[in-house]
Amino acid sequence: MNVLDFARAFFGDGAHWHGYDGIPTRFAEHIGYCLEALAIAAAIGLPVGLLTGHTGRGGNALAFLATAGRALPSFGLLVLMFIWIGLGLLPVMIPLVVLAVPPILVTTYEAVRSVDPSPVDAARGMGMPETRVLFQVEVPVALPLILSGLRTAAVQIVSTATIAAYVSLGGLGRYIIDGLYQKDYEKVVGGATLVAGLALVTLAVFWAVSRLAVSPGVRRGGRG
């Protein structure tokens, strides 16, 4: 039996489509974890990235933090948090957020830094207050890059959120972990396929968002 057959068997089994261990439930749980982690990471990464990018200060500290954050293994962090905090959502959220903040933070910082200085100078010279300079000039111009940072973070969260299953939570990771434990390879392949599919959906969502949110004046060139 090859992978395709496993997948076909998994998705073909009607029992997998309802109940508390059904695909819709696990899918919803997974998306729930991802959205929460992404929201927290964005709430940390975006303001800090925008502020440091706008003022141009703190770039070195950022680079250090980002490297440190990237070097931490998510699974190791999960185990550590589990030992420390116990079961629950928090020990899952912490490694996911730690994973997602660096790409958001660093890309946002770089994106704002790399905005052409002359429109920014013109904006100030016309008497635009600093907050408007940031939100009406720098952010719209940097938006393709900022979105690409969020997208990277989102995709990483989607695949890493499978670890939630290790601490007895749900999500698509359940299939993979239970499947491995039960030597039920249909389940493993099915779970992995669903995670990959969700990652693709995430990419599609970001593509759609950038079509809607990015001005045609900065979209050309295909950044982000």
Partner: peptide
């Protein structure tokens, strides 16, 4: 009014 060398137009605005 303030005019600079490369115009400094806002690329995202018409």
């Amino acid at each position: 009014g303030y005019v600079i060398q490369n115009a400094g137009l806002f690329p995202h605005r018409t």
